[in-house]
Design a protein around this nucleic acid. Structure first.
Lengths: 149, 149
DNA sequence: ATAGCTGCAAAAACTTTGCACATAA
DNA sequence: TTATGTGCAAAGTTTTTGCAGCTAT
């Protein structure tokens, strides 16, 4: 189930959060940039560029709220700032991240195999798993080709 | 192969880095706190508590150096600061982290099964994988028991 | 009408940097 | 001896907070 504006509106109504212009603009930014991992500053710049006034503090507060509501996922790629991506699903299916150690580019990769591991790890450790983050570090095709030139 | 002081001394000699008192104290801190994920401030406090003077900037610089040399591994648990753990191996074998969403405690868990996945993901995505980080989020036994009380 | 939200600016929290002095090799 | 490393303080970044005014509901 992909997050859409209707879901958001409903949850906001249920939880009695106000659906302000700023909050909609921030959400729209994520809809407009699928598969990207935006930082607070990124979102701020994008909304501002589209000629609307917004405060950086509001961006931070909204990203926090949307993460709590599980519409966004907070991720750290080791570049000293938090990044967010829109949740494509409320279910357990995830994608993972391939992070190139040369160019720093982050690519997504699908994989369902990890779900199987979860069960065995949960049992072995008596730990109820509700989510996982997996990052693979290495070298992308482009950088490997350049290296050989 | 577990990192020990002899390895470190040798690599330092090879790379012409000076093995200063401060660097030894910081390494010793990790030897003295196995399985812990220490922040710069943690290390700073521990070394200071043991009555030796050290500067916070030196701690940051040393943690950076030891990470580059692969003696330490930098990890982010989402608490707004970098944490480090001593590398128990130079080989591909890793442990993963179980992070409790209630109490925030981080536990390690061994698992070799992911190595198998790596091959298939690397092939499918044409990406040369050299490392991976896996974090599982959920609820530890203690917190689940408390919840039921 | 009013509880909740925003923008601004100030502050907090973490990390990096410049520089004079100190020290391992 | 001298290239490196250290400590301090200052500066840089990212994120949070206080507060007066604004706005969805």
């Amino acid at each position: 189930m992909t997050v859409n504006l209707k879901d958001v509106k409903q949850i906001f109504r249920e939880k009695q959060y106000k659906l302000t212009t700023q909050r909609q603009l921030i959400l729209q930014t994520f809809f407009d940039h699928p598969g990207q991992h935006l930082s607070a500053e990124d979102v701020f710049d994008i909304v501002r560029r589209d000629s609307t006034e917004i405060g950086l503090a509001t961006v931070y507060r909204t990203l926090e709220l949307l993460s709590e509501l599980d519409f966004l996922q907070k991720i750290d790629f080791g570049d000293g700032r938090n990044r967010y991506e829109i949740n494509t699903s409320n279910e357990a299916h995830h994608h993972h991240h391939l992070i190139c150690l040369t160019c720093g580019k982050v690519r997504e990769c699908d994989d369902d195999l990890l779900e199987a591991l979860e069960g065995s790890i949960a049992r072995k450790n008596n730990f109820e798993i509700v989510d996982h983050h997996v990052k693979f570090f290495g070298y992308c095709q482009e950088c490997r080709e350049k290296r050989e030139e």
